[in-house]
């Protein structure tokens, strides 16, 4: 049926040398989304480098504002929560020197899980496991988006930064939630890239 083993589809050139900048002011340990993104890049043959002063040739993936929120979905007849939804959001931006591959955009991944007031600690650990799973899924979605953005521009090198194609504002509710790896359990509507608060290139701000 036309499927063939994934050839060694090379990474687009801009992704040959990559640096991941995570902006998390009060975080000492590396979040799973960064670890997973780095592993996926290295596995695809990219060289993930550390920050070197004045090195403009490296493509920088800037992750910031990694936030998690939990919202009540279903409520029992006693008014207490029966289902929560874990929502992870991250803001990302990809550029090489002055060239912007992806303007500041936002990505979101959600999963819901049942809740039981007698199982607070177990449910908390289940949420922890979901959080890691969502971050890994986000890393996968990020790589797909970055690969597409950097590949597309290579074909039309002179095209202006694909920042804001007329319709494809970075807000397109994109990424499906099903990752490559373990396919996700049912969840409410999946991760979308919601528009950043400030439109990416509004001059007004």
């Amino acid at each position: 049926c036309g499927f063939h083993a994934a050839g060694t589809r090379p990474l687009p050139d801009p992704l040959k040398r990559v640096r991941i900048d995570l902006v998390a002011p009060y975080r000492v340990s590396e979040p799973p989304v960064e670890t997973s993104l780095r592993d996926r890049l290295t596995q695809r043959g990219a060289q993930v480098v550390k920050k070197i002063k004045g090195d403009d040739s490296v493509t920088v993936i800037r992750l910031s504002d990694l936030r998690e929120s939990r919202e009540v979905l279903s409520v029992g007849s006693d008014g207490k929560a029966l289902e929560y939804e874990l929502i992870l959001r991250v803001r990302y931006e990809v550029r090489t020197g002055q060239h912007v591959w992806i303007p500041p955009s936002q990505m979101e991944a959600r999963r819901d899980y049942s809740f039981n007031a007698q199982q607070v600690l177990p449910k908390e650990q289940e949420a922890e496991r979901l959080r890691e799973f969502l971050e890994d899924e986000m890393a996968e979605m990020l790589l797909l988006r970055i690969e597409a953005a950097t590949a597309r521009a290579v074909e039309e090198p002179e095209a202006a930064a694909p920042a804001v194609a007329p319709d494809a504002a970075p807000v397109a509710p994109a990424t499906s939630s099903t990752p490559e790896g373990p396919t996700p359990a049912p969840q409410t509507l999946d991760s979308t890239t919601a528009a950043p608060d400030a439109a990416p290139t509004t001059p007004a701000e």
Binding site: L144, A148, A172, T175, S176, T183
Partner: peptide, 21 residues
């Protein structure tokens, strides 16, 4: 488990995906 996914080449976003496990 298996996932079948179709990607929008322009934006790298998943147009649809089906998974079973």
């Amino acid at each position: 488990a298996a996932t079948l996914r179709e990607l929008d080449p322009g934006t790298g976003e998943s147009r649809w995906s089906a998974s079973i496990g």
